[in-house]
Design a protein around this nucleic acid. Structure first.
Lengths: 122, 122
DNA sequence: CAGAATCCCCGCAGATACTG
DNA sequence: CAGTATCTGCGGGGATTCTG
């Protein structure tokens, strides 16, 4: 039994899912990768995520200490996001998950298995 | 770009999240582990998941080929769930995630870090 | 540009009852 | 026991507008 932030978890997997199990969190972390991206760049990278959701999930990731937010006090505004060390420590696991997905489809359709698995290119 | 089951994914991470990113899927997979569990046992293991949700998520996992469903044709009914090989191939990754969660909290509160990380004991 | 705020819909998920 | 079926609510999340 684990207590954390007024929530009880019977397993640390539950805790982990609370941190990165949000609707878009894993994807955001993955696309951030080692990069530093502006809000608008993240939006372009994740067109399926509405701006509201993106902001919301980023706030939660920031509160969990997985994402850093750097604000340039200027007009027009400029905000950059990047992973914290804790966030970066997830990248290898996410990479494995990504690779697992590739293996999964290549098992089912051994013919057309020429896909790529990369998140962070400029 | 990946096409799979009439859905387009721009990254295999999206595909992976479609497979195991459901609200309870990772948890179900994790608690199944190497075990074979009856429906009622799964319910006891996951008290926060309603029976309806559990059934639904299990169906989706089954359709994805990650979970096997074995029906004893008898009365009263008996149904057992276990992971397929594809499902079991996820366990090491889930274990890493679980461990990551433990590290995460032990970083934040170095004092009370005496938790456990195990899903599958009878 | 990066968001906060507002409105509002619909579908997720809970509760309950029923069945083989 | 292991589900389906039905009803219902409420809040997640979309679309849009406004602001510093």
């Amino acid at each position: 039994m684990i207590k954390f932030k007024n929530t009880e978890y019977q397993c640390s997997m539950e805790l982990t899912l609370d941190l990165i199990g949000g609707k878009w969190k894993a994807l955001i972390l993955w696309y951030l990768g080692e990069n530093t991206l502006r809000f608008s760049e993240l939006r372009k990278a994740l067109p399926k995520v509405t701006q509201k959701m993106l902001t919301q999930q980023l706030r939660e990731l920031e509160e969990s200490g997985l994402v850093k937010r750097f604000i340039y006090t200027q007009i027009p505004p400029k905000v950059e996001y990047s992973l914290t060390e804790a966030g970066k420590s997830l990248l290898p696991i996410l990479a494995t998950l990504c690779q697992w997905g590739l293996n999964y489809i290549s098992q089912l359709e051994p013919s057309t298995s020429k896909h790529s698995c990369q998140a962070s290119e400029q």
